[in-house]
């Protein structure tokens, strides 16, 4: 399972990097979305009970109940998903407005603020 997840995370990061290095604004945003998914999956693998020992839910004997997962990573991912969802909505609206203002999807055309 860990191997599969590791491959999935690696692919998401690779795809995100590739997309973010393209010149199109839309692909840049898609890259950001993929990147946040990759990080969410990575956090997910961090709570598997193998890496860090017991989950904080324990029975009377101090042992985690069998088959229990670490709830904290899921809470972290949920928070991260909500935040990245909000930012994605914002960046899409912003990209739409800047596309209206500039009339181009090419990042090389977004350079008026860099000129001397």
């Amino acid at each position: 399972m860990i191997i599969l997840l590791a491959i999935a995370i690696g692919s998401l990061f690779a795809g995100a990097t590739y997309l973010m290095l393209r010149r199109s604004v839309v692909k840049l945003i898609l890259g950001l979305i993929l990147l946040s998914h990759g990080v969410n999956l990575l956090i997910f693998t961090m709570g598997d009970g193998v890496r860090r020992g017991a989950s904080p839910l324990v029975d009377a004997a101090g042992q985690p109940p069998p088959g229990s997962a670490d709830p904290l990573v899921q809470a972290l991912i949920l928070t991260a998903i909500v935040i990245s969802f909000g930012f994605t909505a914002f960046v899409m609206a912003l990209a739409y407005r800047s596309n209206q203002a500039v009339g181009s999807d090419d990042l090389d055309d977004l350079s008026t603020t860099d000129r001397l």
């Binding site: 950001l32 990147l35 960046v91 912003l94 977004l110 008026t112």
Partner: peptide, 21 residues
Amino acid sequence: GSRDQLEGGLKYLVLNLLGST
């Protein structure tokens, strides 16, 4: 929402999101 703000804002936003990630 002037053109400069949108262009600068987009770059500001993307690079900061990358740092946050």
